[in-house]
Design a protein around this nucleic acid. Structure first.
Lengths: 209, 209
DNA sequence: GTCTATACTGGGATAGAC
DNA sequence: GTCTATCCCAGTATAGAC
């Protein structure tokens, strides 16, 4: 029989909808973490109903994992680039950090999600996505620099963690520290550039042999 | 008439109970922030009923504010000490940072609460407690150091924020980064000492003129 | 001051129409 | 693929006994 063959053919684009849901979810998870996030808010901000979230991602956790995977992929890709293990260590480290800062500035939701993941979920979902590779890449550049004599003697992993903190704290705590600059917007290009320059100078200067 | 005059006189110590509630609440708010925290969990961990929480603190928000006030008071006291504005700037800055790190190590819940406060509540409650004084104290030591020629030219507020990030990120993200040290406990005395030393060296070296 | 019991609400998840 | 309607649990808050 197949009587009903009506083709809707309007704005029914599955991939586009999924992507918009992920955008809204990323924002919400960055603000509240997994347990604090409200599916209602994600749906409303996307312009779809809650039912759609479950249609595409099965559960709140499923949506969360999808957000994490998408958010971290760029950082992980960058860390896995084999070119970090060749060339001048100081130059490479500065580039590594500068690119990391640039990505963080473009999407400050990512450091926030990472922070929530640590504090709320004790790194449960974080471990699955191979973010440890990021620290390993940095630590190995530090190792090369020490062997080459351009960096002073440091503990590579501790220093890598400290460097990441120096970079991302500005973005994560922006709503607390915004009162330090009454007139300026923390995420404005000038302010971000200042943060990047100050952070990189402190770090690179601090590592000098 | 006043028939019932029986005196309970057992373990009814209001101040002690309040203090124990604050301890449990601090832990819970550090893990989940204001909205994510469960009053049930706080009550259970304290060993009292939920009703007691409302008896002493009127509301979840009231309890949260009490926790914030108690948690920040030490940091603020330290920042307001007038002695920071005299003496060798490099020496004083190192002491300032070292004491800050020591307090953060003793109670890593505080940086976690601050982070949640920024990301979840956009600094709403944070502003009320005068934590800006903390950054001002640090920035003014940096200023003195630049004028004295012992520090290179930096933006004092940006640098203060970067320094705080370098110090606290280790504690806030400890559940994420613990996989970098399979054998060691992040909060063990040796590990904390290493973090403190590495962070301070990076910062002080990074500021040298 | 401390408890038990419960009213009330918000939000995760699902069923089923279209 | 998208919607409406609803179920139901978890969680805040309160009433009232002792």
């Amino acid at each position: 029989m197949k009587v009903k063959l009506k083709q809707p053919a309007q704005t029914r684009d599955a991939e586009a909808t999924k992507s918009r849901i992920l955008d809204a979810a990323e924002e919400e998870f960055a603000a509240s973490g997994l347990s604090g996030a409200r599916t209602e808010a994600i749906a409303a901000h996307t312009g779809v109903t809650k039912a759609m979230l479950y249609y595409y991602f099965a559960s709140k956790e499923g949506l969360y994992e999808a957000v994490l995977e998408r958010a971290f992929s760029e950082h992980i890709q960058a860390a896995l680039d084999p070119s970090w293990s060749v060339g001048d260590p100081a130059e490479k480290l500065e580039l590594f950090i500068r690119q990391f800062l640039a990505r963080s500035a473009v999407n400050p939701n990512i450091p926030a999600i990472v922070a929530h993941e640590a504090m709320q979920n004790k790194g449960k979902y974080y471990k699955q996505v191979g973010v440890i590779a990021f620290y390993q890449a940095m630590a190995s550049i530090l190792d090369r620099g020490m062997n080459a004599g351009v960096f002073r003697k440091v503990d590579p992993y501790h220093t890598a963690v400290t460097i990441v903190g120096a970079c991302v704290f500005y973005f994560c705590s922006r709503e607390n520290i915004k009162h330090l600059w009454a007139e300026k917007d923390i995420l404005s290009p000038e302010m971000v550039r200042t943060h990047m320059d100050e952070a990189i100078q402190l770090i690179m200067n601090g590592l000098k042999a």
